[in-house]
Amino acid sequence: MSAERIAARRITIAGERALCDHRGALVFPEIGLLAVSDLHLEKGSSFARRRSFLPPYDTAATLDRLAAVIAAHDPAIVVSLGDSFHDGGGAARMPAVYRERLLALMAGRDWYWIAGNHDPEAPADLPGRTAAELAIGSLLFRHEPQRGAAAGEIAGHLHPGARIVRRGRSVRRACFACDGQRLIMPAFGALTGTLNVLDRAYAGLFSRDSLTAYMLGADRVYPIAGSLLAPA
């Protein structure tokens, strides 16, 4: 297995087969569904409103990556798992050229905007369905993971990242956090940071012995057992 260089890693969540794409998308091939979380589109312009001029290219970078995973997996259903825009005004602020690109990606697919804490309202003037949660089969898609939730919960919100220490060096990457029953997705947006999966914020969501961090590499996903992870 270790030598096998596949870009996406196969896992099962609550019995459903899925693929973790190294770019941060989760794919259910049998359902034809692709999920991404925490796109945080228009984060740069959101900061600019407070006169902090982050590069205005984050939306373009995120859309490039989104186009790549959609092209690779050609899903019938796309779920954007909340915090799709960095703030409620993001969709309205998005430059027309990016809106066109997003619309082109959406065309011909069932597109779900799950409400997030940054964007509780439906994005302005964009097609797609809006929902607080979405249940498909045994899977339940929602933005914030809930303590004590049933198996099959797919959530985002926490921007999971993991860290390993080996030979005096430390490597930190965004990751899918999964215990076989539930999964938290990495943030997909270009300017999104990470929060270590061993942080207190994850308490009660997974036990460390059953946790695997699927760390995102340059061209593959590296599964690392919870017992091998280092705290933040």
């Binding site: 196969r10 390993i164 030979r167 490597v171 699927y214 690392i224 057992a225 091998l228």
Partner: peptide, 20 residues
């Protein structure tokens, strides 16, 4: 380093759903 860590995971037979 990530590759090594992932390999040692497999050595330790820790891969549950991951290793096919």
């Amino acid at each position: 380093l990530l590759g090594e860590a992932a390999d040692s995971l497999i050595e330790e037979a820790m891969g549950r759903e991951g290793a096919q």
